[in-house]
Design a protein around this nucleic acid. Structure first.
Lengths: 337, 337
DNA sequence: TATTTTTATGTTACCGATAACATAAAAATA
DNA sequence: TATTTTTATGTTATCGGTAACATAAAAATA
């Protein structure tokens, strides 16, 4: 490996002079600069970042810890985050937690050892607090994305959960639905809690009221929901839901599949809407009515907040950026029959 | 930051003893080991990987350089690669080239500086050779995934391009199509070349023959193909293609969109099939007939080959693993009318 | 008990860069 | 020309680990 010592020897200068040239120090004579740069070119020298970070105390590495990159919502977040990171000279380390606290813990430990300068973080649940406290102790800044942890202060980028829920529920109400079921993620996640609350509030405000039997809690993962859905439809005919709101794309698709397995037609027998598009390149005939959260922008802005924080260019008080979603009405929702 | 020196002082041993405990050296007295481990726990010591890699000459970082993580084909590759990396104790740095040689070059330079132990590489084209030669010079192993570069030797994981093309073309032929157009990626990419060749061969073998006017070259990116498609349909009626084969998912969707814009119906007026599903969670009613390449496995196996290579556990001769695709027939292809 | 061997621990130097200080050369001033 | 100031370069120590060698303590052997 070519080092500054090799360059120094060949250029007849001290290693420190080479270092100065590399770092564009202004106190270098033009002739020396040229001579050294020439040798750098010649030997194809590339600075060793590990050595550098030992003194500089920064690695120019950041991480994005999220549940599953193959969820298109997170795929877009990742793309936005990587774009911003590259633009600002950082490299992105990716981690998939699968909503699993042990995996999350493993990543946090590895990342601290690797010395990442900061983490864009989608927590797996309230138990993430312990992991985040480790980061705080080590002075590793992080930014919450999509979800927060009440007990931990940090910058936040999230969708507008109350407003988005309201949009979706009101869309269903406008179609004449009154028995609307909510299939939600685990309520130890802030976004699931906020969506559940807004769901109830919106129904109450519309004078419909809510009933716990229509509010189901499951996971934000690919899963089989046959049992849950069949239970919803085991009610008496005039008690069965005529619409289902799924609080993320995986739940939306899980629900569609369960309905198909149970031979319940969509939208004839039941309307279905969800948060986030399951398709990243909407196909010819996308089917699901969704509220599209601006995932790419969330990743992009999140990375920006993070790097500002890393470079101490951020205000002392934590920022919370809430982005609106766009309702896209498609074939999976129709007027109540 | 807590270092081995802090541990050493508190435990009344030398830093080297601490280092030995951390690395499970067998020459440590049990009582010392316990004492040191106790202090490590107490001070929540975490080893500094940068310092370590300075002597060990490995960073336990690997990179995946691909065109665009938001293409579901590559999303799945990424997920597979990350899973394997984590399993073997490596962290994954992600890079999106957007099929752009300059971006690719930028990543390669950054990665060498960062000191990644290896790279899983989807080259952007023949011009990638220069970048790869830099890696070779620095002794950074890499594995090709999806595409190769003729002039560069390395392990390879790819789909079975000839066989997959054959499956798709034969499916169209069986439906009665004879005027089949190919909308392909740039033929300075090995996969595009192989697909073009197999396309011609399959048609020839079927006694249909091929015509350059039905073979279009474009990009493997999201793009507007209105012009290209409208040209194909500007032929006399009995010369117009009745089927289109797109060589990746983006081209497939681009084509569908162009056809819709031109009010050409699918599959009534023209059948469309492509490589790789555009949807990662196939929606309720996926439309496109596709050949699904096993992207997750490609990423997983690719990472395995790479890490074997890094750890010098690989055979001297380069390995090439070719994985078959699965034809999924859906509504975008139908018998010729 | 003295000597050798084994086991456990410590010392020193180094990985590749840079910060902080020291010094030499050149330019400006007296 | 001598002295001061400025500019350019060099030296030394350090970041946090570990390899290689050195040495001390304990155990085994003579």
């Amino acid at each position: 490996m070519v080092t500054i010592y090799d360059i120094a020897k060949k250029a007849n200068v001290s290693p420190m002079t080479v270092s100065r040239v590399i770092n564009n120090s202004p106190l270098i004579k033009e002739s020396t600069r040229l001579k050294v740069q020439q040798v750098i070119q010649e030997l194809e020298y590339i600075p060793n970042k590990q050595a550098r970070s030992l003194t500089s105390r920064e690695t120019k590495l950041v991480s994005l810890v999220l549940p599953d990159i193959s969820n298109p919502f997170f795929t877009n977040i990742a793309r936005g985050a990587e774009d911003k990171a590259l633009q600002l000279g950082y490299q992105l380390i990716l981690g998939n937690t699968d909503e699993n606290k042990e995996k999350e813990n493993k990543y946090v430990n590895m990342l601290m050892s690797t010395g990442v300068d900061g983490v864009l973080f989608v927590p797996t649940g309230d138990a993430s607090a312990a992991n985040l406290k480790k980061l705080i102790k080590r002075n590793v800044p992080f930014v919450f994305i999509d979800r927060t942890i009440d007990s931990i202060q940090a910058d936040v980028i999230s969708g507008d959960n109350p407003d988005t829920t309201r949009q979706l529920v009101n869309h269903l109400i406008e179609l004449g639905h009154t028995r609307i079921a909510l299939i939600n993620g685990p309520t130890d996640l802030s976004n699931a809690r906020e969506r559940a609350q807004a769901f109830k509030d919106t129904l109450t405000l519309a004078g419909i009221g809510h009933d716990p039997k229509y509010m189901i809690e499951t996971h934000f993962r690919k899963d089989n929901l046959n049992e849950i859905v069949s239970k919803l439809f085991s009610f008496q005919k005039d008690e069965r839901p005529t619409a289902i709101l799924a609080t993320n794309n995986f739940i939306g698709v899980n629900t569609l599949r369960a309905l198909r397995a149970l031979q319940i037609r969509v939208p004839e027998d039941v309307s279905v809407a969800c948060f986030d598009d399951p398709d990243i390149i909407p196909d010819y005939n996308p089917f699901l009515t969704v509220a599209k959260q601006p995932a790419y922008d969330m990743g992009f802005l999140g990375m920006q907040l993070l790097i500002e924080r890393i470079q101490q260019a951020a205000p002392a008080s934590y920022r919370k950026i809430v982005l609106p979603a766009e309702l896209v009405i498609r074939g999976s929702t129709s007027p109540k029959t």
